[in-house]
Each structure stands twice: as structure tokens, then as C-alpha cells.
């Protein structure tokens, strides 16, 4: 399930709703992204998240569907906020539920890496030095790339060693 909203979310209530009435789940992983204040001249007063209504929902649903294709998940949730947030506020919540922990951990990490490099959100920070659009980071693309499926390569011929 995915949700895009300006309102805050309650992590405990979201997890409870996801698992309610189910006894087939063995592992639940959640990740919460929050507004970091920073310090010195870069300290934040607020952060405004802009997004592309329509495309945002499609991208999040696409990313979630891909996670379900790759891992045996019993449930998942992505909640992403937009609008003006203060330091310490929640930005994003990802919850994954599976029979076993590895799938839940990996899928949650995958969802965040994909979301950061493809969901159409843009952060603008406001501090003492005025508003500033946050620049994308190469490390986010690298984090996404680690989930790329390896391209099929021809099998190398076994080496034959003449002398044992």
C-alpha cells in the first residue's frame, strides 16, 4: 500500500494496522526518514517537499510492486509526506513484512534506495542563508545500482590446467 500525504503519521499505528489479524508474518522491518536539523550556518529552520501528484503515486506503486516480485513479502507500506516540515518531523515511512527477516530487511532497503532516486519529490531547505534546493547525490544512484540485476553473461569455459 502507498500513501502520499501532508499529515504526519504514527509509526506504531501504521505497523499495527499492517499486521492486524494476521498470524502468517514472522518479521516486520520499518524505516523512518526524518528532517535533520544540521548545525552551523547550514542549520535548517524548515524543509519544504514538492512532488508531482499523479506520477508520485504511480512511481511508488511501481517500486512497491517490484519489491513484491523480488522478495516473498506478505505486506508492505510506503508513506511519504509533502509540504513544509520542521527539524525532527517525519518525512517517509517504509514497512515490510515477511515470513523471515532477510526478505523484510532487504526489501525495506531496496524500497528506500529506489524511492530516493526515482520518486518525483524535491526538497527545498530554508535556513539563515535563505531557501536552497537540495542537490541529488551520486551516492543515492550508487545505492540504487547495487540492486541492479546482473546482465546475463556467457558462461566462461572452465580452465583446463595442464599440470596439477
Amino acid at each position: 500500500m502507498i500513501r502520499v500525504q501532508s499529515e504526519d503519521f504514527d509509526i506504531g499505528a501504521e505497523i499495527e494496522a499492517l499486521r492486524k489479524g494476521r498470524s502468517d508474518i514472522g518479521a516486520i522491518v520499518s524505516f523512518t526518514g526524518t528532517v535533520r536539523e544540521g548545525d552551523g550556518p547550514d542549520a535548517l529552520e524548515s524543509m519544504t517537499l514538492e512532488h508531482y501528484p499523479g506520477m508520485t503515486e504511480k512511481e511508488l506503486a511501481r517500486i512497491e510492486a517490484e519489491a513484491h516480485e523480488r522478495w516473498p513479502l506478505q505486506a508492505s507500506l510506503i508513506v511519504h509526506r509533502y509540504g513544509t516540515l520542521k527539524p525532527g518531523d517525519n518525512i517517509v515511512l517504509v514497512v515490510t513484512a515477511s515470513s523471515h527477516r532477510h526478505a523484510a530487511f532487504e526489501a525495506a532497503s531496496f524500497l528506500m534506495d529506489y524511492l530516493k532516486s526515482s520518486a518525483p519529490f524535491w526538497k527545498q531547505e530554508k535556513g539563515k542563508q535563505g531557501p536552497r534546493w537540495v542537490a541529488s547525490r551520486d551516492s543515492d544512484d550508487a545505492a540504487k545500482a547495487r540492486w541492479d540485476k546482473p546482465t546475463a553473461q556467457p558462461k566462461a569455459k572452465p580452465k583446463i590446467s595442464a599440470v596439477e
Partner: peptide, 10 residues
């Protein structure tokens, strides 16, 4: 068709 900078959500 939409135009935008690289995304920075999450």
C-alpha cells in the same frame, strides 16, 4: 510532459 531536476525525496 514534465521537466524537473534530479529527484531528492526520501
Amino acid at each position: 510532459i514534465a521537466f524537473f531536476p534530479p529527484v531528492t525525496g526520501g
